[in-house]
Amino acid sequence: MPRAHLMTPLRRFADGESVIEVEGATVGEMIVELDRLFPGLGEMLTMGSSAAVDGLIHAEPEFLAVEPDADVYFVAPLTGG
């Protein structure tokens, strides 16, 4: 199962958990599953997150495919000047 890693601010929506194994063939499917486990977490992930997979940061990663043993890091969306 892919692992979802939550950056610290997101953990308060997941009973303090930092790494959660959830089913999902895409990041979006993982988010649906995470929201089922922790209602409200899904909104936070959709609203304020990018995902880092294999060292690359993806903005709006909903439809990004993930391997069964992937580590998906939910991180802050970045910006610049």
Binding site: M7, G55, L56, Y73
Partner: peptide, 13 residues
């Protein structure tokens, strides 16, 4: 270096 964690989690490329 590559693989060390960033502040938000996830390894540096």
């Amino acid at each position: 270096v590559e693989g060390d964690l960033t502040s938000m989690g996830g390894p540096h490329p």
